[in-house]
Design a protein around this nucleic acid. Structure first.
Lengths: 230, 230, 230, 230
DNA sequence: AATGAATGAGCCTTCATTCAT
DNA sequence: AATGAATGAAGGCTCATTCAT
């Protein structure tokens, strides 16, 4: 279920028309009164999914609530029962998006060795089916961080947690002698994340495949950490 | 002349009001017809400057032509004599923005040694007064590249040129033995650019000062290139 | 229990948020079904009270059902079990509001003399704690009478009753020689009511205190009625 | 050219439909660029006229900008080139509306005697073709004054001017012995205005014709002022 | 009877763009 | 060439009302 808008956007139809079409495609009826929190959470997620698809396609500011509603298959007014304003919706999406980072770092931690962990994380990132959308959103989020304090705060907190987690892994690797002991784990962690962001953000503009660059980058890291290159 | 909009945005006034105020603040009632190509170019630049200020403040899609016109001190309709659509304006701005990269790389090339060049470039970036706006726009541009083919093309071409230039410098350094000879210059160059982008993009969210991270990053690079760390 | 909305309206929050806050502030989660007609009437009154608070604050058309429900501490849907439409709610409120007139006129009738009665009524009006809201609503009602036939009818009927009542009092005063015998009681009564409305409606715009004007007005009346001024 | 909306409002058509109909009825084309202030003032007045018609019909808050635009025969966006917000439009209308008061008072001043002046003013008011709308708006304005400070200020200032003007006339009448010398002119003036407002505001609800009441009211005034009744 | 959820229609405002001057 | 005026379309948000529970 990728952004259904895409199917309409190439025609020259007006946005209003596209939205009506999408709405008619969603045969949804009046849903009645699902009482439980579970249903509410599901609907909330449904909206977030629609929002994500739109934001990936058009960015935060060029995505309209009407688009998001159509994409999610709910009414415009309904969205406002789950999110107070569009900004809140953006923040909520950012919150759910930054979870990814921890997951990736988790991959590193679960591996038997740092070397294998870093490799696994890289492979996972590169081959992830929705990588494209993750990266696209990541950029959107970083750009938004410059001007939207609420977003910046969310990302900053996630960043701290992620760095802390990765630093812990690095410290463990130092303890068992896998990497040099004279590196500052937190700084090193921040660097790894920055490098990763930097690489991925070039997805649409890099003259050579990101895959190659990522491989090279891991080499650089290994040598910096004092591990033998592959 | 930073974005003059900032001066008005905190009041509760409507955008329309703000724009009128800005317009009145720009004394020159009638700009008159540019006398020659040079004057035309100047006017064009004036518009681009206004656009840049707005884009930095609000992003591409949340900046309106009216804002840009007010910020630039020209009339709305006048903008349309220099740029066919808002998208064209964006592309033009992106074109002028990617020039920066070559300038920075130029810094590296002019230095007596690669080590000094890299250091100089880093210092220049970090201490540049308008660094904040450059980075903000960089993210905006990268995010836009994902969805706007015209922008992607411009950035991609610039990227190729920049990498080629940097690769040339690296090759020279290999030739005079400053760095390891077994590195692929182009790939290495791409990596350096990615690392730089990655670092800078964390400006608003990094839990520690970018300056520190940048210093560390240069160490990583040096060790990767086979130079002694500082 | 003055309009609780006031407490929220200064913040920048969206209306949706304000309404949710108010709702949560009203502890009783579920009102339960009213046991008898009396309980039903109480619930109805509860809604009318909420509506009154909102109408005073914002007027008929700028008050939303959601606001009224939040203010009254009932659910939106519940309102629709007591009033078929918002217009019906308005009419019902108008009906309850015009009762005031009879009460005031009653005050005049109960006094030992017309002189004392008029004075008492004036004092009562001016010093009434909720005078402000009464007057505000009175204007709202009069304005609405121009365009809403249902409201006009209600007010007109009340007006007739009130005039009749006051005329009766005046006739009695004529009978015992307190006032001139050549006045037409009904016309005179209408005049008194008009003067009263006219005075009070200037509450927010009068350059001098209404109290003074009211005193003067009573003098005028007295002299017109053929009573000695105070 | 009374409110053209009236023609549509009885059918059950949606507002949107009505607005489209009205728009199509206005064959207006793109107006080009009238440079002069005169054209701007005319257009501004045109909008105010449309607004007035709507406000009379539906009140301030139930009149939408779209309605006003359709009624005035301009586009919605165009309105915003003449008035910053809907509230500003309301204030502007109120400003133009309170001018009426001075005109009426002017009538009194121009008459050869106070008696004739008051009579003339009354007759003028009662027989004015658009009296209905004037009174309707007057009530709307007074009601709005309670909650809209900007409106209250405008009305208050007008009120002061009007009272001053009328007081001057009364003082003159005192000077030439037409009326009692012991009345306070300003207070008396305020009273006259209040009585007038009070009477007129009962237009839609008075059980007997306002004309009669007005006549009676003038008698009251005359006797209060110490003039012989007619 | 009471209510949370839902929605089509509408609200105010702004947008990118065009046109007559 | 430059610009004020103009506008259809769309933006974010709220409304009165309904329905299933």
């Amino acid at each position: 279920m990728f952004c259904r808008f895409a199917r309409y956007l190439d025609n020259k139809r007006s946005i209003t028309y596209v939205i009506r079409m999408l709405k008619e495609a969603n045969q949804k009826k009046h849903l009645g009164r699902p009482r439980d929190d579970e249903a509410r959470a599901a609907r909330r997620q449904q909206i977030l999914d629609g929002a994500r698809a739109c934001f990936v396609q058009k960015g935060f500011h060029a995505s309209s609530i009407a688009m998001i509603a159509a994409e999610a298959g709910v009414s415009v007014a309904n969205i406002y029962q789950y999110f107070e304003t569009k900004d809140d919706l953006i923040v909520a999406l950012v919150e759910s998006e930054v979870e990814n980072d921890l997951v990736i770092v988790g991959l590193i931690g679960e591996a038997p060795s740092l070397r294998e962990g870093l490799n696994a994380a890289m492979v996972r990132l590169i081959s992830m089916a929705k990588m494209h959308t993750v990266v696209q959103l990541r950029l959107e989020v970083l750009a938004e961080s410059f001007r939207n304090q609420a977003v910046a705060t969310v990302v900053q907190q996630s960043e701290e947690r992620t760095i802390a987690q990765l630093a812990k892994i690095l410290r463990a690797a130092q303890a068992n002698g896998e990497i040099r002991g004279d590196l500052k784990p937190a700084q090193c962690a921040a660097l790894i994340l920055a490098l990763s962001d930097g690489l991925l953000s070039r997805l649409p503009i890099s003259p050579r495949p990101i895959r190659e660059l990522a491989h090279e980058a891991v080499q650089v890291l290994f040598s910096h950490l004092g591990m033998k290159p592959v």
